[in-house]
Design a protein around this nucleic acid. Structure first.
Length: 312
DNA sequence: ACTATTTCCTGGATGC
DNA sequence: TGCATCCAGGAAATAG
């Protein structure tokens, strides 16, 4: 559910609150789904590094990590680990997390080392900043203990979220940023594709960050039906689509994203763009332009909402 | 090289 | 009230 505007909102909030923090220690849960990198490598990369920046790339939250103190170890090289090598996984959450402590003896390094911690929230992932005394929620998969005494926690009931580290600071989410791409590039991306435009918009290898809500909303504003094959869309319509996508995303960011179900930002505040939805979640309700009932169809397993009158 | 379909996961909503 | 079933969604994996 968090798409570009929600992730942008969350990343901005985090940047405000944890930039400059040092990660002292890391606890990682025993569930393996949320971890794309080996637990030991992730913990070792995070521990003793400073959060230099937090930013959004597509739907990913990227924490830029730096380690410029000569006394500290360089980021660990890629290592194969035993599958059960999960940092202190057996510790009970109830008594407070035990934090993965001792690492290998630091090897002095001359250069400033960079790495990244990459968080994808999936459907239900959340990053919390809280005091160590705060109750640890069910489905907490990672806890970063910060030098300020606070904790940064990753909670994700459905476990569609993913955590990974990129040792070389070269994380590439693929695709292009929808708020940066120009019309010609957009046309290049979609031209000639037989797939429905809705599916193309959701393909993160083309545009990164657009999800189900903003795809439907953009197509409505552009007057294009979600099932339209990308290849049949005219240059002029692509122009309209390009401006619709950017308009929808910018408005949504300005309102703090869409709070569907239980989405809240890092401060616990809800977004308000859901109040501006013109088709998403409005099946059967009258189109705000022409009063025709909004239709809901399924495209590639995704519910898609549109006005049969306004969209062609 | 593309495109379409299936799979992963749990909580909330719905139905009997 | 309780139990079963369905649905939501992103992206990786699989199949064509």
């Amino acid at each position: 559910m968090p798409e570009l505007p929600e992730v942008e909102t969350i990343a901005r909030g985090l940047a405000k609150r944890v930039t400059g923090e040092v990660v002292e220690s890391v606890w990682l849960g025993q569930k393996k789904e949320p971890l794309k990198s080996p637990a030991r490598q992730m913990a070792a990369t995070l521990e003793q590094s400073r959060i230099a920046a937090v930013r959004r790339v597509g739907k990913h939250i990227v924490f830029d990590l730096e380690r410029d103190d000569l006394a500290r170890a360089p980021f660990p090289a890629k290592s194969r680990n035993r599958p059960d090598d999960v940092a202190n996984a057996k510790q009970s959450l109830r008594g407070g997390p035990s934090l993965a402590g001792k690492r290998a003896r630091p090897t002095p390094t001359r250069s400033s080392e960079k790495a990244q911690w990459i968080v994808h929230l999936g459907m239900t992932g959340r990053l919390q900043i809280c005091s160590p005394e705060a109750d640890i929620e069910k489905h907490t998969h990672a806890i970063l203990k910060l030098a300020s005494g606070r904790e940064l926690r990753f909670v994700d009931p459905r476990r569609f979220g993913r955590l990974s580290v990129s040792a070389a600071a070269d994380f590439d989410a693929g695709g292009m940023e929808p708020l940066e791409i120009d019309v010609d590039r957009l046309i290049q991306l979609f031209r000639g594709r037989k797939t429905p435009i809705k599916s193309a918009l959701l393909n993160q290898n083309l545009l990164r960050g657009v999800g189900n809500i903003y795809a439907d909303e953009s197509l409505f504003r552009a007057g294009i039906r979600p099932r339209r094959r990308a290849a049949t869309i005219t240059r002029e319509q692509f122009g309209k689509l390009h401006s619709s996508i950017q308009e929808v995303l910018r408005e949504a960011i300005a309102l703090g994203g869409s709070s569907i179900s239980d989405y809240v930002d890092t401060e616990g505040k809800a977004g308000f763009f859901q109040l501006q939805h013109r088709v998403y979640g409005r099946e059967g309700e009258p189109c705000l332009v022409c009063k025709t009932p909004i239709k809901r169809i399924v495209i590639a397993g995704r519910s898609s909402h549109y006005c049969p009158q306004c969209q062609k």
